[in-house]
Amino acid sequence: MRYCLGLDMPGDAALIAEYENWHTDIWPEVRKSILDSGIVNMEIYRLENRLFMIMEVGPDFSFDRKAAMDAANPAVQRWEELMWKYQVAIPGGKPGEKWRLMDRIFSLQEAL
Rank of each mutant, 00 (worst) to 15 (best):
Y3H: 13
G6A: 13
D8H: 13
D8I: 00
M9H: 08
D12A: 10
D12F: 08
D12C: 09
D12N: 15
D12V: 08
L15S: 02
L15C: 05
I16N: 07
I16C: 12
A17C: 10
E20V: 10
D25M: 11
D25V: 06
D25C: 13
I26Q: 11
I26P: 14
E29A: 14
E29F: 03
R31G: 04
K32T: 10
S33I: 00
I34R: 06
L35S: 11
D36T: 05
G38Y: 01
V40P: 00
N41M: 06
M42G: 03
I44Q: 03
I44G: 04
Y45H: 15
L47T: 12
R50W: 00
L51V: 06
L51W: 06
F52N: 01
F52G: 01
M53L: 14
I54H: 03
I54P: 01
I54Q: 03
G58D: 15
D60C: 08
F61R: 01
S62A: 05
S62N: 08
F63N: 04
F63R: 06
D64C: 02
D64P: 02
R65Q: 12
K66H: 15
A67M: 13
M69R: 11
D70W: 01
A72E: 15
A72F: 10
A72K: 14
N73L: 06
P74Y: 09
P74M: 09
P74T: 06
A75Q: 09
Q77T: 06
R78P: 03
R78V: 11
W79R: 05
E80C: 04
E80P: 00
E81C: 07
E81H: 13
L82S: 12
K85Q: 12
Y86K: 00
V88P: 01
G92I: 03
G93C: 00
K94Y: 02
P95S: 01
G96S: 01
G96F: 01
E97C: 04
E97H: 03
K98C: 01
R100H: 05
L101V: 12
L101K: 09
M102R: 05
M102Q: 10
D103H: 11
R104D: 00
R104V: 11
I105K: 12
F106Y: 15
F106C: 02
S107I: 07
S107C: 13
S107A: 13
S107Q: 05
Q109Y: 09
Q109W: 05
A111P: 02
L112W: 09
